[in-house]
Design a protein around this nucleic acid. Structure first.
Length: 128
DNA sequence: CTTTTTCCACAGC
DNA sequence: GCTGTGGAAAAAG
């Protein structure tokens, strides 16, 4: 998988168009997308990144800037290997909070990892 | 199966 | 420029 820094449109492996100019739009898109995640399930940074054809870390950066962690449930976005990943509340690391939130929503975490069957693919979610 | 290595694309200094 | 992330994939063990 080749990652880009900005969203783009790719058809049949051919880059048709990039959208460098509006990075704040990307942020809004990501925030909107994570609200589609059903409670009790999680998705991955990579899943979102694939959808927009951007690097997963851009997704992480966008979520980090999220000022409303409850309205925009960025805690439902985890790493592709099942680990929770990081979490920050008002500038402070709060990984344990993320874990607790997920547990409250019914996401089982074993050995610091979410069971793979709870990780859903956003592209599939949008197609169903 | 787990850990390490290497690369990533910013933001902030 | 260099450093530190809310990461990922490949390589190594």
């Amino acid at each position: 998988m080749k990652w880009r820094s900005v969203p783009c449109v790719v058809f049949d492996g051919v880059l048709l168009r990039t959208c460098d100019s509006n990075k704040n739009i990307v942020k809004e898109l990501i925030l909107a997308l994570i609200q589609l995640i059903p409670i009790g399930n999680v998705t991955t940074y990579s899943s979102i990144a694939c959808l927009l054809n951007i690097h997963p870390r851009i997704v992480a950066l966008a979520l980090k800037k999220n000022k409303r962690p409850i309205a925009y449930p960025c805690h439902r976005v985890i790493r592709s290997d099942g680990y929770i990943g990081g979490y920050t509340l008002s500038g402070r690391r709060a990984d344990s909070v993320k874990e607790k939130l997920l547990t409250l929503e019914g996401v089982p975490i074993i050995n610091g990892r979410v069971s793979p069957n709870r990780i859903i693919d956003l592209t599939k979610l949008l197609l169903t």
